[in-house]
């Protein structure tokens, strides 16, 4: 089945790459092995997953060329479409890439090509507790619903700050707009809790995904010089968070609707 999952947010630092890496790893562990694609001038996914990334495009470097001529646009993004057509794929869009990405999809008739090829889109918009991130998520979801058909919409509330999380934003215009998408477009909301684990913080500081931390958990615990009781407590916090994340992301891990 050609399911194309696109993870986006025009706001940086909301956790797109971490979520993309988790989804890729989840599908790998479940036997899927999706094509891993990133369009990001920072190439963050590649710095985290290395050779596992099948295609890494520096979007910003090519923007002038992309806008100058439609043929160039098509040539630049052709490999992306090829990978989408090859089967299951996960695409991580960097910050400020969402708008040119939609322009490419619209201007080059990508949506109709996808329909012909039987590609089903899942558009995932990620936001952290931040007004700008919420507004960017809403615009991206609206745009995705207009460009792709069929498309499943997902909104991920990624609590990157802790404390009250998204609670202060409930009732704000940006938050209410996203709620309207749930009723009008069947957008699915996914909540990822804040992670208080020192193990994950240690990993993030070293470009390690939470799963890379899990694979080397004893080495990370040793590096943090945790006592026996801290070790047990931190491991529990980490595993409970990871378990919550896998439960939250379950709708995106399954390829059947």
């Amino acid at each position: 089945m050609k399911v194309c999952t696109i993870i986006s947010s025009d706001k940086g630092g909301v956790g797109k790459t971490e979520i993309a890496a988790l989804l890729i790893a989840a599908r790998d562990r479940l036997g899927g092995r999706p094509a891993a694609i990133e369009i990001d001038h920072q190439m963050k996914l590649k710095s985290v997953l290395g050779g596992r990334v099948d295609l890494s495009l520096r979007a910003c470097a090519e923007l002038t060329k992309v806008y100058s001529h439609q043929t160039s646009v098509g040539r630049h993004y052709d490999p992306v479409f090829d990978l989408w057509s090859s089967g299951e794929s996960i695409t991580d869009l960097g910050a400020n890439v969402t708008t040119p990405f939609f322009e490419w999809a619209r201007d080059c008739g990508i949506a109709s090509l996808c329909r012909q090829d039987g590609i089903r889109h899942r558009f995932v918009s990620v936001a952290s507790p931040d007004s700008q991130a919420l507004r960017a998520a809403y615009s991206a979801l609206r745009e995705a619903s207009a460009v792709f058909d069929p498309v499943e919409l997902y909104f991920i509330e990624n609590d990157t700050v802790g404390g009250s999380g998204f609670q202060p934003y409930v009732g704000t215009t940006a938050y209410r707009q996203i709620e309207t998408l749930e009723t009008s477009f069947g957008c699915t909301r996914i909540r990822i809790p804040n992670c208080k684990s020192k193990l994950v913080e240690f990993g993030r500081a070293r470009s390690m995904t939470p799963l890379a931390v899990l694979d080397r958990i004893e080495a990370v615990e040793n590096a943090l010089r945790l006592t026996k009781v801290e070790r047990a407590a931190e491991r529990l916090i980490f595993l409970e968070w990871l378990s919550d994340v896998q439960t939250a992301l379950a709708p995106l891990m399954m390829m059947e609707s």
Binding site: L22, A25, A26, R29, L30, P210, L211, L214, K228, V229, R231, A232, A233, R235, L236, L239, E240, L242, S243, V245, Q246, T247, A250, M253, M254
Partner: peptide, 27 residues
């Protein structure tokens, strides 16, 4: 298992038991 590619229930239960034991020993 289809929904638990990262952490299996047994691993989580074991971590909980270990944390309780470690906390008791510390106490």
């Amino acid at each position: 298992n289809a929904l638990a590619p990262f952490v299996k229930r047994e691993a989580l239960d074991q971590a909980r038991a270990d944390a309780v034991d470690a906390e008791k020993a510390y106490s």
